[in-house]
Design a protein around this nucleic acid. Sequence first.
RNA 1: GCCCAGGUGGCGGAAUCGGUAUACGCAAAGGACUUAAAAUCCUUGGCUUGUAUAAGCUUGUGGGUUCGAGUCCCACCCUGGGCACCA
Length: 808
Amino acid sequence: MSYQPSKIEPKWQKFWAKNNYKNWHTSDKPKKKHIYILDMFPYPSGEGLHVGHVEGYTASDILSRYYRMKGLEVLHPMGWDAFGLPAENYAIQTKRNPKEVVKKNIKRFRKQLQEMGFSYDWQREVDTTDPNYYKWTQWIFLQLYKKGLAYEAEVPVNWCPSCKTVLADEEVVEGKCDRCGKEVTRKNLKQWVLRITAMADRLLEDLDLLDWPARVKTMQKNWIGRSEGYDVEFKIVGQDEYLKTFTTRIDTIFGVTYLILAPEHPLLEKITEDSQRNEVQDYIKQALQKSDFERQSVNKEKTGVFTGAYVINPANRERVPVWVSDYALISYGTGAVMGVPAHDERDLAFAQQFYLPVKEVVAANGTLINSGPFDGMPYKRAQEKIALYVGGTKTVRYKLRDWVFSRQRYWGEPIPIIKCEKCGLVPLKESQLPLKLPEIKKYEPSGKNESPLADIVSWVNVKCPKCKGPAKRETNTMPQWAGSCWYYLRFVDPKNKKKLIDIKKEKSWLPVDIYIGGVEHAVLHLLYARFWHKFLYDIGVVSTIEPFSRLVNQGIILGEDGEKMSKSRGNVISPDSVIKKYGADSLRMYEMFMGPLTFAKPWNTQGVIGIYRFLNRVWSLINEEKDKSKKIKEKDVFKMTPEAKKKLKENIEELEKIRHQTIKKVTEDIESMHFNTAISSLMEYVNSLYQVPKEKINKKHQETLVLLLSPFAPHLAEELWQGALKHRKSVGQEKWPIYKAEIAEEKSFTLVVQVNSKVRDKILVSKGIKESEAKKIAKNSPQVKKYLKKQKIKKVVFVKDRLINFVI
RNA sequence: GCCCAGGUGGCGGAAUCGGUAUACGCAAAGGACUUAAAAUCCUUGGCUUGUAUAAGCUUGUGGGUUCGAGUCCCACCCUGGGCACCA
């Protein structure tokens, strides 16, 4: 019989599913050594699983299967991030109810994951749209509200006209909606906002504790954008007002030649001179009409208008003009900037545009000039002194803004707040959770700055829990990210009715040891989840300060043309079609063999076939009858050096050595996540086994091969283990093979003989050979003799167990 | 513009500490088997010169350190990613 994945794979999937996947179920409170291996759970979109999911999920599955065989208890769960725009937009497109659509999509995703042979603990499955789950998402919101970390505010927000909802800053990419690609506009709306800025310092500092890719840490650092500087006030000439500016370079204050206010600055109106009023008002109007993206696009010409007002520079008492320009942002600092064209690129561009003076105050050597009493002082040291001199206050500012948390959409967690005209905002009682999302007929966004929930009179109108008077429910829903902020906690205790998580269980499993997923979540999910986790730590729900100790980003898989996979390009590879042709094992292994996990790699269908061939070779190595085995002709066998060939023929010990070397290599490579080289070494092992007549291969070799292969190609391994090799247990429950270092070690090595650093000969010698002996052997080589001739040897370099170099 | 990562055969990639560059796989060529094809198995394979022994060159480019550099240092070029008026 030949290797037929379409026959054996469903068979073993059924076998694993027995007793609700009992073999992969983990206890709540692990006793032995344990590890929590987590995938970023998918949005169950209508597209189904794609090859990018398969990549990360295969990597984590290999680790999970490996560590189980090493005797660790492994928590490896899966669930569904099913609220939010992708599912809802798909439902609207196909004119169906989001709930039904999601249910169907989840079913399909689950089936696809099971067809990949992923070893999840399906008893811990969670779904963010299940009321038993989002009850706790709402509960966390209530706690945030009680601690003052959730508040309502009228804020300028990003509005997507196509999705008809508010977006978080993180969801806007290059001025466009991250979901649909439409240009985002700006609106002022009353919104729920989470005070993530309160955690800014901790989110920044604790990055040091994490074993994460440096670039993800850098992205978070930049996103938080901490700057230390000073607030400095400038007195307005002829008025009693002061303009407060924020600067990180107070040492350049003697170089201020103008001041800039953002168009939204509250004092602008008041300070503008009548002669300039029309011009300034026109400018403000224009600026406010522009989208954020337009205003902030780079390399654009600077614009601005003089207000007619002057301020006094507190450092040197000079009068400097006040301008309005949209390169000052109202949302950062004080909305007012001191213009120092000599030492700031943007200020220089502005000054050149409007012929404003440029005054140098820091010399090339870094000491101050034209700075009165501070001349000659190094600029760094001058900062504190100047601050004292001009009355500046030390301030820390962040780029990070509070997180706009409400969405005008149906498909999200309802915010558990009641609005009463008399009592104001009244939170629901915990006993009233979950506040279920009502089933409605019309769930398209209305575009009226409200969620479609606002139209459900029977749901919206309630009695105020406090005064019993008429009141209304909050109709906005939570954003996509809410449910994914804490799902990794629920996996540990998915059925707890009384608590979000039992802290004893949390203590034994958290933090997540290995978290695998795409880099696209570097500042969204990963920052929000850290924020919530720290909050839960503060209120005593969890005992750990960070949720994910180690993060690994898989690289994206490109189409066969080397471009990003997309429907419009027509280069999308569907996992289903690959499974159908070559089986899930080939798909898994190919994706791991393509290259390092973290690299971006182009798909190559021929490569899948290569892996398929390899699995066939494994199959026939173990399955074929001995008499039918390769008609090995001694003369045409070997692809190895003559020495190795001889050894293999004469000495089966060589094969045993390779067996131990392979165990060593595969073990080390799995632990360091070098899956591509682990597979290479399995291939080399199989190639070696093919070099010897079948009857010389003992069962030990076959068993080792199957065990080592089992995390990568679990179906094939199970078939061979329980079939041809006649074992009773699942291969996944066997022990991982061990190697002996002394057997794996090579006894001899190829001594490289160089003359003037050029390789002239290679001689097989035993390991540990001494310099004197090596010298003797090397000098005897006819090749080497040719080069040495009568020349005088100036120097001999000997590297133990490697080479000898004669310098002449 | 700034920051980060990376440039190795026709392709994906391998190569602890500076010590045999190109493992493994794909594609290619030749052979065996077959009526034939597919599949399978075997062999070859960086480039140049050469019948061959062999010699020279080769890890983006140019320098440097070293007995010895894919690996370390300097400069430059290119690709990918991130940030982008954050004062």
